[in-house]
Write a protein that binds this DNA or RNA. Structure first.
Lengths: 209, 209, 209, 209
DNA sequence: AATGAATGAGACTTCATTCAT
DNA sequence: CATGAATGAAGTCTCATTCAT
C-alpha cells in the first residue's frame, strides 16, 4: 500500500509543479502568449511529461480557472463573516469580488476569458467541473439572501435568480473598468461600482420588502 | 469626374467585400481562429489586397466591432421610440439589448470579445474610435434618464454613472447565459434578465424618487 | 523645340524628385528596408510612375551610388588642391576619403554595399557607369602619382597599380572601423588609419626612390 | 550512458546536416536570397527542426562566419610555418589570405558580407563570438611582427596596429578584384596584390629599421 | 514515467512588379 | 504620362502534439 500511496503523492506533486509553472507564465505573458514548450522549460520537465499529466493545453488552463474560482469563493466567504446584517453582508461580498478583480487580476482574467468566450472551449468534463465551482458561489450568495428573508415570500427559484443577478451584474461592471480612462469623466470606477451595488440591493429590497 | 467617383465606389465595394468575408468567418470560427489567409480566400482576393485595404488584422476587426456597436445603437434608439414613459423606455431599451445579443449573436460576441479581453488588443487609434461608439450609446441612455428626472435632483455625474451602470450590468447578465443549461434550473435566462432589469430600475427609482 | 525642351526638363525634375525621396529613405532606414512603395509615398507619386522613370529598384540605387562616387571625387579633388607636395597631397586625399566615410556615411555605405557584394547585383549597363566613376577617381590618384615622379622610373601600368593599391587599402581600413570598440584597445581608428597611410606611402616612396 | 552519448552525437550530426545545407545554399544564392525554408528543404528536415537547432537565421549564419574565420586562421598559420624570416613569413601569410579568398570564395564572401555591412546584423552575443575569432587572427599576425623586431623599438600598441593595418589593407584589395576585368588594364589582380604587400611591408620596415 | 527531437501547417506581413484605365 | 489597385509568392517564425526510445 505504501508504494501506491507514494506513487499517488508523487503524481500529485508533478501536477503541482506543472500548474505552478503554467500559472506563473500565464500571469506574466497572458493566456495566448503562453506555450506548452515554455511551461515545460519553466517546470524543468520535458514537453512529453506535460502531456502525460494534462492531455491538452486546454485542460491545464481549466484547472487554473478552477483555482481562481476557489480563491474567489474563499474571499467572498471571508467577507460575509465580517458582517451581521444580511444586506450589509451582501454589500461586503460585492466589494470582496471587486477587490479580488484587482488583487488577483490574473485569475480574474482567466475566469473572464472563459466566461466571455463565445465558443465552447472546454470539453464537457471540464465545463462541468468549472460550472460546479461557479454554482457553489451562487449557492452561497443565495444562502445569504435566504437568511435575510424571514419576512419575505420568495420561493427557492427566486432566490437563485438573485444570486446570478448580482454576480452577473457585478461581473459586467468589472469589465467596464477599461473605460475608466476614456469614457468615465470624473467618477472613479470604484465609486460607480459601489453605487451600482447600492441600487441593485435597494431594488431587490424594495421587491422583497 | 466620373472616373474618380467610380474609383471611390469600387474601392468602397472592395472594402465591403473584405469585411463581409471577415465577418462571416469570424462568426463561424471565432476571432482567434480566423486568419487573413482565410479571409482572402473567402473574399476571392489575394492576401496582399487585404493589406492594401486594411493595414492589419487588428484594423479589420476594429471595423467589425464598430459595425456591431452602430447596429446596437440603432436597435436601442428604435426601442426607445416605441414607449413614452422614461422608465418604460429604459426597460424597452434593455430588452432591445437582450434581443440584439440573440439576433445578432455574432456582433455581440465581437463586442464582448474586445470588452472582456484583459490585454489591450487595439492600438490607441482604433480604441478611440470604438470608445466613441460606446460613448454614444451611454450618452443616449443618460439622455433618457435625464428626461425622466424632472422631479429628481441628480447632477450630471450621477446621470452618467447610471448609464454605465445599466449597460454594464446588462452586459454581465448576458454573459451568464451560458449557464442556462447547467446552473439555472427551471428559470429561463430571459426571465432572469427581465427580473434583473426590474430590480435595477427600481433601485435607481427609489434613489431618485 | 520649346516643347521638347520643356518636356526634357520636366522629366529630369521628376527623376530628381524620385531620387531625392529614395535617398532620404535610404539614409533613414537602410538599403534593405527601403521599398518602392515607400519611395513613391515620399515622392508623392504613384508607384507606377517610379517604374516609368526607373526600370527597377536596382537602377535607382545604382544612380545613388553614382552620386556618392561623384561626391567622393569632388572631396578628393578639393583635398588635392590644398597642398603642393605630391606625397603630402596624397596624404591629404587619403584623409579626405576618411572624412567622407564619416561625414557622408550613407553614401559610403551604399558604395561599400555594392563594392563588397559578391554577386553581380547590377546589370552590365549600370556596372559600366559605376565603374567609370570609380575609374575617374583612380585616374586622378594616378595623375597625382605621375606628377610626383619626375625622378622615378615607373611606367603607366605601375602608376595605375598604385592608385588601386591606395584606394583599396584605405577602403579596407575603413571597414575595420567597426572593431574600434571591441578589438582595438587604446588606439583610435583614425590614428591607425593615419599610420597606415604613412606606411603605404613610405613603402611606395622607397620603391620609387 | 550509451544512450546519452548517442543522443549527443546525433544532435551534433543534425546541426552539421543543417549547417551543410545552409552553407551550400549560401554559396549558390548569396546571403539575402537564402531562406530558412530552402535550407529546410535541402537538409530534408522540417522548418521547425531548423529552429529547434538554431534559434534564428542570424545564429545559423554567424556559425558559418565562425567556420570561415577558423579556416582562414588555419591557412594563415600553415603559411607562417613554411618560412623562417619574419618578413617573408608575413608575405607568405598575405598570400595565404589571397589564396583563401580564391579557393574558399564562399567563406570569404560570408566574412566580407558581415564585415562590410553597415548595420549590425548580429546581436551582441554573436558579434562577440565572431570578433574573438577575428582577434585571434590579429594576435597571430602581431606575434609574427613581434618576433621580427629584435632590433626595432615599437611598443605594444604599435604592434597591434600593424596587424590590423595589414589585414584591413589586404582585405580591401581583395574587394577590388571585381574591377579586374574593367578598370585594371593589363595588370592581373594577383600581381597588384603582391606589389601592394611589398609596399606595405617595405613601408613598415622602413619605419622599424 | 519520462524524455525531447521532430513535425509541418499555419500565423502575419512585405514587396517588386504589372497593367488596365 | 500618370495612376494605384491588385497580385501572390516568399519571408521568418511559432506551436500543439506525437512517438520512438
Amino acid at each position: 500500500m505504501g508504494l501506491r500511496e507514494r506513487r499517488a503523492r508523487e503524481k500529485e506533486a508533478r501536477r503541482r509543479q506543472i500548474i505552478d509553472a503554467a500559472r506563473s507564465l500565464l500571469f506574466e505573458k497572458g493566456l495566448q502568449a503562453t506555450s506548452i514548450n515554455q511551461i515545460a522549460k519553466r517546470a524543468e520537465l520535458a514537453v512529453g511529461t506535460i502531456y502525460f499529466y494534462y492531455s491538452s493545453k486546454e485542460e491545464l488552463f481549466a484547472e487554473l480557472q478552477e483555482e481562481g474560482l476557489e480563491l474567489l469563493m474563499e474571499k467572498i466567504q471571508q467577507a460575509s463573516l465580517a458582517v451581521g446584517d444580511p444586506k450589509e453582508r451582501l454589500r461586503s461580498m460585492a466589494m470582496a469580488y471587486y477587490d479580488f478583480s484587482l488583487e488577483h487580476k490574473d485569475y480574474f482574467d482567466i475566469i473572464n476569458y472563459f466566461l466571455s468566450s463565445p465558443k465552447v472551449l472546454l470539453s464537457a468534463d471540464f465545463k462541468q467541473r468549472v460550472d460546479q465551482r461557479m454554482e457553489k458561489i451562487l449557492v452561497f450568495i443565495n444562502a445569504t439572501f435566504a437568511k435575510g428573508m424571514e419576512k419575505g415570500t420568495l420561493g427557492e427559484q427566486a432566490q437563485e435568480s438573485h444570486g446570478v443577478l448580482l454576480l452577473a451584474a457585478f461581473h459586467g461592471l468589472m469589465q467596464f473598468r477599461k473605460f475608466e480612462t476614456t469614457i468615465f469623466q470624473g467618477i472613479s470606477h470604484r465609486t460607480l461600482y459601489k453605487r451600482a451595488v447600492g441600487h441593485l440591493l435597494d431594488g431587490i429590497d424594495a421587491t422583497l420588502g
